[in-house]
Design a binder for these strands. Structure first.
Lengths: 225, 225
DNA sequence: CCATCTTTGTGCACGCGTTCACAAAGACAT
DNA sequence: ATGTCTTTGTGAACGCGTGCACAAAGATGG
């Protein structure tokens, strides 16, 4: 019986072993003192708690580049997700084959959701269509929505929405990049002050004093919309 | 001069106003007591601190569905990013127009990075090619990489990598979905125990006792790879 | 010019999560 | 069986971030 100790797992994950044990303990007592955790059993328990052992039929609405990319993404199937249908509003797309599936027309959205018992929908439409698609999905019985469109969706209580903004990660990289390069004054007169990971909110600035609201001369145009 | 108070901003964002003020204070003293914050000036200061006022040329490698979707994504330009080049290894893609740009061949990667002064690269290739592309980007001078390929990249010190796993968000939704539906026993014998947001790690279970390592009979196959 | 009102900037205290440290539990050798 | 050794599970302490509450600062009106 292959086992792992909390110590090994913690080292591999770069976390504290006590915390790891405490976290595991919330799932139940699955370890054996003096031995460790049965790998296979532990993996199963975590998978089950996370919902990875269930089959989740999902519908994808909006089969443009992004929708197609998602449909082809291998990571879904291995995590328990099954793409039950691809839906697009463009009649020219209807019937086309994407990722081995035939794209269906948006008119049939309600029927598709109902017949497949879908409770999770993915929206990859243009921003303008997202809210409308969202409303129809919710009306059809979908209770969780993953939104790739750059819009904030409004939904009734009881429906979960998660928004994916593909540029946020890029922005984080750019932030770090800025710190790497411009340690000494990039634009204004500071540059130092915020650390690059932890101590960002820890720094005790020089009690401000100068870099505050200048003579207004250094206030260029505002950020791009 | 249009202004906002920390109270208004906090209400809009759903956070505590004191924390918001404290956070702002790390950027300097940009508010006026009795009045609030000058909107335009505040936006500029935050933008500058976040690096949004700079122009970040980026290269995108791997122009498949995902790469094309990203190239067309409008959110980048408005955040200060400029797609300097699209690169693909497939000779059939070379010269094709995607998002108004001509796709260039991977052979020219080093030259492109150098000539455009690129320090941020986006990898949207298949998993198999990601590490190789990454190595070449780094060798060419790129110091930040956004990785969409399902691979963990290894890079030398000083290079930042952020991995985007498109299925993680979906998994979070599925987790919540599971709790919504299966309040009473989904598979095993528990089901209750973990709350749906905050108290997940707070629950005091019934001191375990039964649901622990059962008679082995209830240990189905392990999670899908 | 002084009084009053509004809102910032921040010291301080509280509470929560992380980590320490150890008793309990089981494996394994003798 | 008994003792030793390893590793878990968890009570308790520590430290950090959040939120409270207030003094300082500037606006505004008389």
């Amino acid at each position: 019986m292959p086992t792992v100790s909390s110590e090994e797992l913690a080292a591999a994950a770069g976390v504290n072993s006590a915390k790891l044990r405490k976290d595991f303990s919330y799932l139940g007592s699955y370890g054996t003192r003096g031995v460790g955790y049965d790998v296979e059993y532990l993996v199963y328990q975590i998978s089950r708690e996370l919902g990875l052992t269930q089959d989740w039929p999902i519908v994808m609405v909006g089969i443009g580049n992004l929708g197609a990319a998602l449909a082809n993404y291998g990571g879904f199937a291995s995590r328990g997700f099954r793409v039950a249908a691809l839906i697009d509003a463009d009649p020219a797309m209807t019937g086309k084959s994407v990722a081995g599936m035939s794209v269906q027309h948006a008119d049939d959205l309600e029927k598709i959701v109902d017949e497949n018992g879908v409770s999770i929908g993915v929206i990859a439409t243009p921003a303008g269509a997202a809210q409308q698609v969202c409303d129809r999905l919710v009306a059809a019985g979908v209770t969780s929505i993953l939104n790739f469109a750059p819009t904030v969706l409004s939904v009734p209580d009881g429906v979960d929405v998660r928004k994916v903004d593909l540029s946020i990660e890029l922005q984080i990289l750019a932030f770090h990049e800025q710190r790497k390069a411009g340690e000494g004054a990039v634009d204004g007169a500071e540059g130092a002050g915020v650390g690059v990971e932890g101590p960002a909110a820890k720094v005790t600035r020089p009690t401000a004093g100068d870099d505050r609201k200048g003579p207004d001369g250094d206030v260029p145009a505002v950020m791009p919309a």
